[in-house]
Each structure stands twice: as structure tokens, then as C-alpha cells.
């Protein structure tokens, strides 16, 4: 959580494998393969789903909570719409919003972390102080509050989830940057009086790529869970949108009558999170060379 801890948990001094190398290394691990297959499958459902759906996502097929039948293989939801169709339509928002929130969070976090880690001045203290403060925020609570205040806009939800990711990514990046900037070749580059931004971009960032890829997977899984929790509390996407998290919320009252409308979106959400975890674990193993799991604090 604080500066102390991150350096403690930081990587060793050796030069880390860069992005492409570690991609190849990671692929050797079973976790990565399984993770990639699962993730691709979910993304495929999300992207291609709407074209395969037997009905329109707002079309009424049967009475609400209808049992599975020839017309609706997995029954109907709380409004009598086809569950399969809703599932096929409902992945896009989850996939896109979770990816976007991690990307935004990483961009913010990496920028903060790089500057803090490399500046070694008061700026470091200020930036890391800021992340400490943001870390102290009860993230889910404030997200709930802001969504209640400003309305459940998708951009707002993405931004709020992203802001929650940023501090930890910033801390990780800073720790790695501190380590990397002590490496000989970086010191050499400094000695050659190369501009700082070039050293950051060309020497340090590639060196961070693998641990950040590990982090990406972890963060993606967290995003998925967070978006689902928001939908569960009613502060996520709003009807009549088809969305996995919203489906769970809309149909949970009939979980023991028409379980499919809840169980399938639960499964797709959990699989998506699982896939992200496994990929990041594969990277972690490739990177650390030991059995270290890809989950860090």
C-alpha cells in the first residue's frame, strides 16, 4: 500500500524480459493457453453474439420466467424475452467497459508511476501521497454515490472504475521504475545526457511491459467483478439494455424457478474473469520463472 511495501514486493534487479519475449514464454504455460481460449470464447460471444441471436433483444417471446422450450432454449427472462438472445447481446457492454476501464486506469497509473519513480524529487512524494489518498477511498461506495448523483452513464462508470485501478498500477510502476532506473544501461543513457522522456519511453517502459501485462489481467478480472457488483446493486447499466450483470439483477428473484436467466450470465462473467486471471498467471510464471501467482497486492 505504501512505498515501503512496493519495493519489497518488487521484482529483482535483473533485466526483465520484454513484451514479445515474455509473450512467447508465457504461451508455454498451460494456464495461458486455457486462459486465452476462455477469454477469446467470451469475447467472441460478445462480439458475434448479436448476429447469431434468434430474436431481437427486446422482443417478447413468452410469459416472464418461462421454462426452456423449443422456442427459447434457455427459457425467458423477467419480461418474457429470450434468455439466449439476451446473453448473446449482453456481453458487449461487459467486455468493452471492463477493457476500457483497465486501459484508462493503466494509462493514468503508468503515467503517475513513471513520473514519480523517475523524478526522485518532491513530485514523487506528491504523486504517491495522492495515490495513498485515493487508495483510502472506499471505492465501491464512492462509485455508488457518484452514480446515484450523476446518473448511470457508461462513461462515468468506466471512469470511476478506472480511477480505482490507477493507484495500485502507479505504485507498481513506480517501484519497477525505481529498480529499472538503477540498471546499468539506464544509468548509461543518463550519462549520455539523453532527454528524460526518451529514457522513460525507450529504456524503462519496455522493461516494465511484462509485469504490467500481469497486472492487466488481474485488473481486468477485478473490473468485471466490480461492474457486476454495481449492476447487482442497481447502479450499473439500466434496462432495457441487455447486459450480463443487469440480467443477474433482473432475474435473481426467480433464481430457483428459472435459473438459466441468472446462471448463464453468472457463468459468462465468472469465465471472463477467470480467463483474465489465468492469462496473467501465465505471464507471471513466465516472468518470474517461479511458481509465483499473478496476483499481487
Amino acid at each position: 500500500m505504501t512505498a515501503v511495501a512496493d519495493t519489497a514486493a518488487g521484482p529483482s534487479r535483473r533485466r526483465a524480459p520484454t513484451g514479445l519475449r515474455s509473450l512467447a514464454d508465457a504461451w508455454k504455460h498451460l494456464q495461458t493457453k486455457v486462459g486465452v481460449i476462455i477469454t477469446l470464447l467470451i469475447v467472441l460471444v460478445a462480439v458475434a453474439g448479436p448476429y447469431l441471436a434468434p430474436y431481437a433483444h427486446t422482443e417478447f417471446v413468452d410469459l416472464p420466467f418461462g421454462k426452456p422450450s423449443g422456442d427459447a432454449w434457455f427459457g425467458t427472462d423477467n419480461l418474457g424475452r429470450d434468455v439466449l438472445t439476451r446473453v448473446l447481446y449482453g456481453g458487449r457492454t461487459v467486455v468493452v467497459m471492463s477493457f476500457l476501464s483497465v486501459v484508462v486506469g493503466m494509462v493514468l497509473g503508468i503515467a503517475f508511476g513513471l513520473v514519480a519513480g523517475y523524478s526522485r524529487t518532491w513530485l514523487d512524494d506528491v504523486l504517491m501521497g495522492t495515490t495513498d489518498i485515493v487508495l483510502a477511498f472506499p471505492h465501491l461506495l464512492l462509485t455508488l454515490l457518484f452514480v446515484a448523483m450523476a446518473g448511470p452513464h457508461k462513461w462515468l462508470i468506466v471512469l470511476l472504475v478506472a480511477v480505482g485501478h490507477a493507484p495500485r498500477i502507479a505504485r507498481l510502476t513506480r517501484g519497477l521504475t525505481l529498480d529499472a532506473s538503477r540498471l546499468e544501461y539506464v544509468e548509461a543513457a543518463e550519462a549520455m545526457a539523453l532527454p528524460r522522456w526518451r529514457i522513460l519511453a525507450s529504456e524503462i517502459l519496455p522493461n516494465l511491459s511484462t509485469p504490467l501485462m500481469v497486472e492487466f489481467g488481474v485488473r481486468l478480472a477485478i473490473s468485471v467483478g466490480m461492474l457486476a457488483a454495481l449492476s447487482f446493486l442497481g447502479a450499473g447499466l439500466q434496462p432495457p439494455e441487455a447486459d450480463w450483470g443487469l440480467m443477474i439483477n433482473e432475474n435473481r428473484s426467480a433464481l430457483n424457478v428459472q435459473p438459466w436467466a441468472v446462471v448463464i450470465p453468472m457463468a459468462t462473467i465468472s469465465l471472463f474473469a477467470l480467463g483474465a486471471y489465468l492469462i496473467s498467471e501465465g505471464f507471471a510464471r513466465a516472468f518470474a520463472g517461479v511458481d509465483r501467482q499473478g496476483i499481487r497486492t
Partner: peptide
């Protein structure tokens, strides 16, 4: 009612 249960109420 809490934001949550659009479906639930009932």
C-alpha cells in the same frame, strides 16, 4: 426499495 430490484419488487 433500494436501487436494486427492478425485477424483484413485485
Amino acid at each position: 426499495t433500494t436501487t436494486a430490484a427492478p425485477s424483484g419488487t413485485a
